[in-house]
Simulated scan of single mutants.
Amino acid sequence: MIPLYQYSSFSNSQEIDRLGEIMRQCFGSSPSDWERYVNLLSTENFRILRQGDRIIAGLAIYQMGQWFGGQNVPLAGIAAVGVAPEARGKGAARELLTKTIQELYSSQIAISALYPATQALYRQVGYEQGGSYCKWELPIASIQLKERDLSMYKVSLRERHLFENTYNQQAQINNGNLARHSAIWTQILESEKEKEIYAYLIGSETAPEGYIIFTQNETTIEIRDWVLLNAWAARRLWTFLADHRSMIETVIWRGASVNPFTLLLPEQTAKITSQMIWLLRIVNVPLALSLRGYPTQLEAELHLDVRDDLIAANNGKFCLKVSQGRGEVSQGGKGYFQIDIRSLASLYTSFLSPQQQQRLGYLQTTSEALETANLIFFGDRPWMADFF
């Protein structure tokens, strides 16, 4: 008997074209958009679902990393999940995601993240809210800073290594920031709409203390990417933006729900205008827990009992031993901390505290294990500045 669905990667150019037709209808994109997207990610990073001899669904996978507790954890970013309209409502999307997660587990990928069009579908396969992605707006006239001690240098977008090195210094101290896929860097540094992109380094040209990459129109500066490694760089950048006030009214950026560098502004004029919550899935429980970073002075054990309906090897009891900032996971233990795979994702990222999870009814545990978990997963609220 032929299975209802067959999951695979592309085998020929006709399959690429067929998935492109589905994606264009799902997302309202053009043929050139699809061609550029395939070239950015390369064909081996797409998966398709067939019903008989027809391709009815597909998705893209960004193989990269995500920083948690100061450690880079192998991540599969899932994007462009699309199902042909005539095949919807029959479980195709869930089957596609289930097969993808099982493949990721077999490939020793620890975690997976995505931006949901709908939470219900992704929760069915173990994803849960993991961190924030916020759009900010700031009236430039309200900045009112005049600090120019640091130099700023206009640089070529081809100086990618300078941006990457500086970005990595910031990313590793922020839960949820990406160890970026090359496609994300390309999307930042290359304009697909003939719009000019400007880039400036802050401080030294060889060891910058920050940078900004942006576009502008008649009234708005939109920051595509920026890094600020200290308060001096932040003050210099706010001043740089304020120096555009004769023409520009507003600056826009994307990032965390709390930006500490806005405290350097005289008033609370920077506002969040929209927010999305990205989702995370723990693909491999022992691998994810062992690769994450933890508080360096903490010596502790947490005895977990995990439930996962999709990956059988994630079910059962695990003992997490934390020492000198690293975790070691073994099977077995006392199972005092009972949690399902979805709730473990929000705990893992530090998006929700153990106490918040307990109040929601998402875990059962002892008071001692609850306090241990609070120490182990303590950290800044997770966020991303990148959409994929």
Rank of each mutant, 00 (worst) to 15 (best):
E44V: 13
D33G: 01
A84G: 03
A79R: 03
Y5W: 14
K90E: 15
L287A: 04
L114T: 04
V81D: 08
F378I: 08
I184A: 10
M23P: 01
R254K: 14
E209D: 14
I61C: 06
V251R: 08
G332H: 07
S343P: 09
K146R: 13
R245K: 13
I221D: 02
L241H: 05
H161N: 11
L201D: 07
L121T: 04
L138I: 10
A113Y: 03
L310M: 11
E209C: 05
L59Y: 04
G82F: 02
R88P: 13
R24F: 11
I272T: 13
G65A: 01
Q25G: 05
N174V: 10
I101S: 02
F10I: 07
P266L: 07
F68S: 06
T250P: 02
I339C: 00
F377A: 00
G58T: 05
A234W: 09
Q297H: 14
T250I: 12
M384L: 14
E86W: 07
A385D: 15
T100Y: 04
L75C: 07
E147T: 09
N315G: 05
E301Q: 12
A385I: 14
F27K: 00
T43Y: 13
S13D: 15
L41R: 04
T43N: 10
L40V: 09
T43W: 11
S151C: 06
G203K: 01
N230I: 09
V251N: 05
G327N: 00
A369F: 05
Q172V: 13
S204L: 03
I282E: 02
G69K: 03
N45D: 12
P74L: 04
L310F: 11
D149Y: 13
L289R: 04
V125I: 11
S274I: 02
S112F: 06
G203H: 01
K317Y: 13
I339W: 03
R54T: 15
R47E: 10
T365I: 11
L96W: 03
A369P: 11
Q66N: 09
A300I: 02
L344A: 02
Y211T: 12
S151Q: 12
G327P: 00
V322D: 04
E299S: 12
N12V: 10
L228E: 01
T118Y: 02
S107Q: 15
G333K: 04
L138M: 12
Q169T: 13
D305T: 09
L344R: 01
T366E: 06
L310T: 06
S151I: 07
T215S: 06
Q331V: 14
I272A: 05
V73T: 04
V251C: 10
I311P: 09
R381C: 09
T366A: 02
D149A: 03
P3S: 12
D243A: 01
W278F: 15
S182G: 01
F351W: 13
I56W: 01
S142D: 15
N177P: 00
V81W: 08
G335W: 10
F68I: 11
F387M: 13
Y127S: 00
G379M: 10
A120Y: 04
T219C: 00
R359T: 14
C134Y: 01
H161M: 08
D53F: 02
Y336C: 01
V306F: 10
A199Y: 04
Q169G: 06
E267I: 11
G69I: 05
A234D: 03
E209H: 07
L241Y: 08
G69H: 07
G58D: 03
N177T: 09
A385C: 07
I61N: 05
S204M: 07
Y200S: 00
Q355H: 14
G361A: 09
L289Y: 02
I282F: 07
T262R: 00
